[in-house]
Design a protein around this nucleic acid. Structure first.
Lengths: 147, 147
DNA sequence: TATTGTTATACTCTATAACTATA
DNA sequence: TATAGTTATAGAGTATAACAATA
């Protein structure tokens, strides 16, 4: 009984996620960015004075190799730049360029637009409730491989 | 204010979706299936006497081309078979083989397992509430491209 | 002409393994 | 030896366009 509800939950959940991702893609496409790049640019912007690749990967919950691809794409468009960490020359610090800084607000606007398209029909109380549940789900059990 | 909540909602939502997908992949991997294949096998099983490629794609909310890849994978493993629709020779009817039938219950068990790992910590009332909200979100605004 | 499914192609995201350069 | 980031490679998912067979 409970199992069936969980399965239906998972199905409905992934369906919403798919649509949310699609809307986000369409919002970001005019800016020439993929969802992953948009997300990364936000993290880099919030980091302020430069963020190391490993830390960026951690914040985005992706493996370091994926962070390389994302930053490559942003760098190709002149939105970020890499410079060696003065304190540890193995590390790279990623910072926004002026062009990147100018784009951040438009990206956040696109993200909000996609989110509003998806969740705009919910009552404010429902959103708060949903957010609380999601944060709790994210808070516990961070190990996808193990139980 | 509301915008900020929606953006945080979207972020938390996609994070849960990512982890749910990861757990699902790990549950299905021992069966040699990808999440898309597992989902498709369930739809084909519920269709009973054969489902057309276009209908399968519609149920999975993917483009017909993607359905071809999914069914290819299942057919390679001998879990489904294609036969021409007697009523319209342009169409293909996809049905389960005996091997596919035997696997369905294990797949559903894996899906429930992943869902339980993710949503098991929620109270029953919370699950019902969450499910209701998700179904409502999926019910309205089915057009990702347009507004 | 329109529809069904396919081949061909491409891009995003993800992941593992091996390599380079530092530490 | 250990770590940071990269190159190399691979597979899943998605999408569009062009094509063949059929309606």
């Amino acid at each position: 009984m409970t199992d069936a509800t969980s399965a239906r939950l998972a199905d409905a959940f992934m369906h919403v996620a798919k649509r949310l991702r699609g809307r986000w893609m369409h919002q970001l496409a005019p800016l020439g960015l993929t969802p992953g790049q948009g997300r990364a640019l936000g993290v880099i912007a919030r980091a302020g004075d430069g963020i190391r690749m490993a830390d960026l990967a951690g914040r985005l919950d992706i493996v370091p190799r994926s962070a390389t691809s994302v930053v490559d794409g942003l760098e190709d468009q002149g939105l970020v730049l890499r410079r060696p960490d003065p304190g540890d020359r193995r590390s790279m610090l990623v910072t926004l360029t002026e062009a990147g800084r100018l784009l951040v607000s438009r990206i956040e606007q696109a993200q909000r637009g996609a989110a509003e398209e998806m969740f705009g029909t919910l009552e404010p109380a429902e959103r708060d409730q949903l957010l609380a549940v999601l944060l709790r789900l994210n808070a516990c059990g961070k190990h996808p491989g193990s139980i």
